[in-house]
Every structure is written in C-alpha cells, then in structure tokens.
Design a protein around this nucleic acid. Sequence first.
DNA 1: CGACGAAAAATGTTCGAACATTCCGTATTC
DNA 2: GAATACGGAATGTTCGAACATTTTTCGTCG
Lengths: 260, 260
Amino acid sequence: MTNKRKFDPATRRAGETLASSTYASLRRDIIDGAIPAGSQLRVRHLGERYGVGFSPIREALNRLARDGLVRQVDLRGFTVTPLNRAELEEITRTRCWLNELALRKSIERGDAAWEEGIVIAFHRLSRISVSAPVNGSEGDSNAISRFNPENDTAHRAFHASLISACGSSWLLGFCEQMFDQSDRYRRLAKPSVRQGRQHDEHRLIMEATIARDVDKAVDLMNRHLLRTAELGYMALGEAMSPAQAVAAAMSSLEAVPAER
Amino acid sequence: MTNKRKFDPATRRAGETLASSTYASLRRDIIDGAIPAGSQLRVRHLGERYGVGFSPIREALNRLARDGLVRQVDLRGFTVTPLNRAELEEITRTRCWLNELALRKSIERGDAAWEEGIVIAFHRLSRISVSAPVNGSEGDSNAISRFNPENDTAHRAFHASLISACGSSWLLGFCEQMFDQSDRYRRLAKPSVRQGRQHDEHRLIMEATIARDVDKAVDLMNRHLLRTAELGYMALGEAMSPAQAVAAAMSSLEAVPAER
DNA sequence: CGACGAAAAATGTTCGAACATTCCGTATTC
DNA sequence: GAATACGGAATGTTCGAACATTTTTCGTCG
C-alpha cells in the first residue's frame, strides 16, 4: 500500500527511468505545441511541472537535443527549437532528398515481408484516421491540435515502413528525425485542414511503391511532403502574428496551461 | 593566486562548462581508441579519471550518444558503440549515399566563395599532412594511432567544405556524423598505412569538384570513401582477434593506461 | 557437481543544496 | 539623457549523499 517510494511518481512503467518518462512527456508537449516554439526551458520550472528533480529533466533535455527538438547553449540553458519559414524550407528540402533516396533503395531491395509491412501500416493508419477525430472522451474539443498518440504512431509507422528496406538504419533514423521536425509544422494546422487529402495521398504512394514504380512513387512522395509543408507555411502565416511571436519568445513554461 | 575555485579544475576555458570540456576529452579518447570499443563507461570511474562529478560526466555521455559514439540503455548505463564489420558496411554505404547527394547539390549551388573555401581547406590539409607525422615533441612514438587534433580538424574541414554549399545544414550534420563513425574505423589502421594515397585522392576530388565535373567528382568521392573503409576492414581483421574482442568487451576504464 | 536463491557489492539514477554565471533593474556619472 | 557600473534576483551548473536496480558472490539444496 505504501506506494510512496521515493523514485516512483505515479507515471512510470517498470524498468523505465524517470528520465525516460519525462523525456516522453516533454517530447509530446513540444511536438504538440503545448510548450511554444522558441520558449526557454528552465530546469527548475520543468522539474516542478513534471514532479521530478533536476537530473531527470536535464537528461530528458539532452535527449531532446539529440532529436533536434531543443537547442542548448553553454551557461544559457535549453530552448525549444524555433519555428520559422527558413527552417521549414530547409527541413522540407532535406526531407524530400532523404526520403527519395531511401525510397529508391527500399524499392530496390524490398522483399515480400517489406510489402506486407507497408500494407499493414497503411491499414492501421486507415482505421485510426477515421476513428480518431471523433474522440470526445475528454471533451477537450477546444484544443485545436491536440496530440493523438495512436494516430501519430500510425502515421510515423507508415512513413517508416515505406523506406524500411533501404538497408541503412542510419538513414532510417535521419528520415525519422526529419519526420519529427516536419511534424511540428504540420501540427500547427487545424486537424480539419490537415485531415483532408492526406489519406488518399498515402494510399497512392503505397500503391506505386508496391507496384515498384520507382519514379511515380518518388514523385508522389515528394508532392506529399511538399503539400504537408504547405500546411506549415499557411499556419505560420496565420498563427505567427508579430504579437504571438513575441509572446512565444518571451513566455516561459508558467504561461502554459498545466496539463498532466 | 587562489586559483582553487571549486568549478575550475585547470583544464577549462572561459565560458566553457565542465560538461563541455569533459565531452571533448571523452570524445577524443573514444575516437582515438584510448577507450576501447564496446567497453562500459562507468560514471564513477570516469568522474575519477577526468576529475569531475557525476553530472558533467552524465551530460558528456548524453552528448556522445547524440553523436552515436556511445549507446545508452535504461538502468544499464553507457557503452562505447562497438566496432564490427556489419556496422562498418552500413556506415560506409550510408556515408557514400549521403555524400553523393550532398556533393551533387553542392556543385549545383556552389558559388565562388564555396570554391575558395575548398581550396583553403585543401591547402591547410596539405600543410599538416606532411608536418604532422614528424611530431616528436612528446616522444610517444610507441602510440600507434595517436590522436592528432590539427590533422583531424583539417581533414574534417576539407570533407565538409566540399559539400558545404548543398543547401541543408541538416544534411551537413548527418554527413559529419557519418564522418565521425567512419573515422573510428580509419584510426584502427596504422598512420603509415593510412597516410598513403589519401592525400592524392583528396586533390583529385577537389579538382573534379571545382571543375564542376559532377559524375567524376562523385565517382572519385565514392572510391575514396570505399578505400577508407578498406583500411577499417583490414584493421578489423588484424586487430580484432577473438582474444582482443573479448578483452575489449570486458575491460572497463581502469584497464586503460591513464593519460591526462 | 550443478541449479537455484539469497545476501552483498557494484553500478545507475535521483535528489536538493551550494556554487557560478547571466540577466535585469537601478543608480551613478559625464 | 545616454552610457556605464553596480548589485540583487534568476537561472544554469556541479557536487556528493542517498536510493534503486543490476550484477556478482557465495552458500545451500537437490
């Protein structure tokens, strides 16, 4: 009954460190935008917010720096990697290049198991894409771009499955990193907007890939990624009015509505 | 006179944290092989060795994980990323792909300043390549593959300069990461072996690149990277006898000759 | 003798106090 | 009034003790 062990603050699975669970929470909050881009990440405030000490926070922030989601400067702490058009342009460019490369190699080398993996990933994405938007269990429909773990996982898994046979776990990791970066911009757009043609695009990419039509698959993929980036551009134009930009730059974590 | 401030253990520049300097030292020792591949990195031992507490060590290890030089497992600490043929093969493959991509884009987009950057980088590499081997100031000629900061910096800078105009700092970072990985294998070979044709290869790559002969430059680059990988394969065959492999896997830091 | 298991050692992790630096408002000077 | 100097508050960094888990050791049992 005395579940009040010192290193066990409720939200922790077996064999997982506080640093890992805090990393997951922080990552979620950053990608989702709950912690605004550009804001300072102060160790003390974060510790208070997530209910842990300095060490796990620092560890988590280091891992986020690994993902490129936060930046670190000696003696000046951590900052959420800012969002702007120049960055989005570079991220999109890089993402297209790397995905084209990985997709070509993957289609070259992929076997039957690889094809089946794509089909399964697409199927799971289909199921969740339609059921997720009606998620009214929490009644937080006012939250515009609320994070949806299932949908996120399925979307990520589908994109990963396409290139999973490329023959380089390094390249896969780089592509996933660019996916994360890109996803931060995509989440700026309202779900209603971004839900639009994405699913059809995914289906076409899958079909061309499995048909081993390399050039068509690559072309569809590039268009898909560019269209995704468009969502980010539009959202940046709308959402980042000067006032909000300043607010994002200045606001620290205490300005964020606390959600546990 | 009282230079005995608590957070100032001699080897520290202004504005630099202990974590940063420890990161640099550890990185050096790992790439150089002073800390053997596959060995466990125990926070307490490292702290004693580098004269710092747990926090900077942990921070440094996290940054090394960012570089892919160490691996981390929850509750089981950090390990130097092991060296083996399968990894070398994948690293080489990925490195060739990414460098080809970056070199093509760089030649497309590069301007005069980019060309001059290459020429300067090559010049610096030339100067150091001939002067470095005769470095007898420390008299440690018995150290086979001793780390040479100047040469290392120049070599890295030359490879970076070729692709610096590719238009993506992300891609540049990924290429640098693959450079580091590859360099660990290259350093397994004796300097006398690896000093061989490398310099001529660098010159040919530079010439083809500046002449904007894309296909030739890419071909030379790929051959260069593959030849570099060959050094690693040979060294792995020689150096990694089963006995040594076991020793490397088992030995912790205390087995390493202490050098400060 | 080997399998199993409990105690002990070693190691990874977390905490909060203490220290160092930066940031920012205020006062001083010219 | 602007530039500079000062000083306190806020924040980043480091330390070592304390705690949790893993690994090793060693005794016991079958």
